[in-house]
């Protein structure tokens, strides 16, 4: 049985797809056979972030509608062994996803894979609900910013009431907080919510903190998951988060302000 992990947030633009790509790649790098599914039907982007946009022939909806087999639709990652991508449809809408259809695909994937990462669309409507319905664990991607934190709390409520585990009265979905786009400098001068602030409000265990990093845009420009950039703070922070997800202990890094020189501080900037 595969472990199904949804990457979700409620709010858009917080880094769900970046995180799905990074974490999926990180898990596969540890030797676990992993598939990342793009649930954002109509607005697919995981293929671009993973750099396989030109290799998409069939998609998730084709498989649900039995227009293609899973093995025809799955794209094997060229860089990372044990990693596959199932792209979303770009032409259909979110109604193309049905509980039965999604379940059939997940069941088939479960036979072959150890981890299934569901990259959720933004919002709390059908697409997002489909992405989280079958989850065993959820990674809630949050920016240290009011609207993102509020939306994360909202999605936590949905995880606790509208998932299969909730409906069947099973053990609840494992919840993990992933704080992204974190600026330690702005936190230090009281301009941004700190890790502890967000932990206090959402009250779920922290999986990791990804500092704001130029490497993220650079990686998406090139279609490479940022976790493969092991020179960047973001890449290393994602590696730590994957280690924690696998049950290893890793201290938090990159939360302290880098010391500026005396003159730079005096003159500002």
């Amino acid at each position: 049985m595969a472990k199904i992990i949804v990457v979700t947030s409620g709010k858009g633009g917080v880094g769900k797809t970046t995180s799905s790509a990074a974490i999926g790649t990180g898990i596969a790098l540890k030797g676990h056979k992993t598939v990342i599914i793009d649930f954002d039907v109509g607005l697919r982007n995981l293929d671009l972030i993973m750099g396989c946009e030109r290799r998409v022939v069939y998609d998730f909806v084709n498989v649900i509608n039995k227009e293609a087999t899973l093995s025809q639709a799955l794209i094997k990652d060229k860089r990372t062994k044990d990693l596959f991508i199932l792209p979303a449809s770009q032409t259909r809408d979110k109604d193309a996803l049905t509980i039965e259809g999604v379940q059939a695909v997940l069941d088939e994937l479960s036979e072959e894979f150890e981890y299934i990462i569901c990259d959720s669309p933004a919002g709390i409507e059908k697409g997002a609900q489909m992405a989280l319905y079958f989850a065993d664990a959820a990674i809630v991607v949050t920016n240290p910013e009011v609207s993102s934190v509020r939306d994360s709390d909202r999605i936590l409520g949905i995880l606790q009431s509208k998932s299969r585990r909730a409906e069947e009265g099973k053990e609840p979905i494992e919840e993990h907080l992933l704080l992204t786009r974190y600026h330690p400098e702005r936190v230090a001068i009281g301009e941004m919510l700190s890790v502890t602030d967000v932990e206090d409000i959402l009250a779920i265990p922290l999986l990791g903190v990804i500092p704001e990093s130029e490497a993220v845009l650079k990686a998406s420009n090139q279609g490479t998951p940022v976790i493969l950039d092991q020179e960047s703070e973001a890449g290393l922070a994602y590696t730590d988060a994957v280690d924690r997800l696998m049950g290893e202990e890793r201290p938090l890094r990159f939360l302290d302000v880098q010391k500026k020189g005396f003159f730079k501080r005096l003159l500002g900037g």
Binding site: E145, V146, V149, R150, V187, G190, E191, M192, L193, S194, D197, D200, I201
Partner: peptide
Amino acid sequence: SASVAKDRL
């Protein structure tokens, strides 16, 4: 502003 944000949230 961060502490205002936290209180409001």
